[in-house]
Computed example of a mutant assay.
Amino acid sequence: MIPEITTEELKQKLENGEKLALVDVREDDEVATGMVPGTKHIKMGEIPNNLDYFDKDKEYIFICRSGGRSGNVCAYLQDQGYKVRNMVGGMLEWDGKVE
Results as ranks from 00 to 15, higher is better:
Glu59Ser: 12
Tyr76Gln: 08
Ile47Gly: 09
Arg69Glu: 02
Glu30Gln: 11
Gln78Phe: 10
Asp24Ser: 06
Gln12Asp: 11
Lys56Ala: 13
Lys11Tyr: 11
Tyr60Pro: 06
Gly45Leu: 06
Thr6Glu: 05
Val23Asn: 04
Pro48His: 13
Leu22Gly: 07
Lys56Phe: 07
Gly38Glu: 09
Leu20Asp: 06
Gly90Glu: 00
Lys56His: 12
Asp57Ile: 04
Pro3Trp: 01
Val31His: 03
Asp24Leu: 04
Lys58Met: 08
Asn49Leu: 15
Gly34Ser: 09
Cys74Met: 10
Met87Gly: 05
Lys19Trp: 01
Gln80Leu: 15
Lys11Asn: 12
Glu27Met: 05
Gly81Ser: 15
Tyr82Trp: 11
Met35Val: 15
Glu59Phe: 02
Lys97Ser: 11
Met91Thr: 01
Asp95Lys: 14
Thr7Glu: 04
Thr6Gln: 03
Met87Thr: 04
Met1Gln: 15
Ile61Trp: 02
Leu77Thr: 10
Ser70Leu: 07
Glu93Lys: 08
Leu10Asn: 00
Gln80Asp: 14
Arg26Leu: 03
Gly17Arg: 02
Asp79Phe: 12
Thr33Glu: 14
Glu9Tyr: 00
Met44Thr: 01
Phe54Gln: 10
Ile63Ala: 04
Thr7Tyr: 00
Ser70Trp: 01
Glu59Arg: 08
Gly90His: 00
Thr39Ala: 15
Val36Cys: 06
Lys58Leu: 13
Thr33Asn: 10
Asp28Met: 08
Val23Ile: 14
Glu99Lys: 15
Val73Phe: 06
Asp28Gln: 13
Asp24Lys: 03
Met35Asp: 05
Asp57Phe: 03
Glu99Ala: 14
Lys83Cys: 04
Asp95Tyr: 03
Asp24Gly: 03
Gln80Asn: 15
Gln12Ala: 09
Tyr60Asp: 10
Pro37His: 09
Tyr76Glu: 08
Thr6Ile: 05
Asp52Pro: 09
Ile2Gln: 09
Trp94Met: 05
Tyr76Phe: 15
Glu59His: 05
Ala21Tyr: 14
Gly96Arg: 07
Lys83Pro: 03
Met1Thr: 14
Gly17Ala: 02
Gly38Met: 08
Leu77Ser: 11
Ile63Arg: 01
Glu99Asp: 15
Gly71His: 04
Trp94Val: 02
Leu20Thr: 04
Lys83Ala: 05
Lys13Glu: 04
Trp94Glu: 03
Glu99Thr: 12
Lys97Met: 11
Leu22Asn: 06
Gly17Thr: 02
Asn86Val: 10
Tyr82Val: 11
Leu20Met: 05
Ile61Tyr: 07
Lys83Asn: 10
Asp57Trp: 02
Leu20Trp: 02
Asp52Glu: 15
Asp29Ile: 13
Val36Gly: 03
Glu18Phe: 00
Val23Met: 05
Gly67Glu: 02
Val88Trp: 00
Phe62Ala: 08
Asp29Ser: 13
Leu20Val: 07
Glu15Tyr: 01
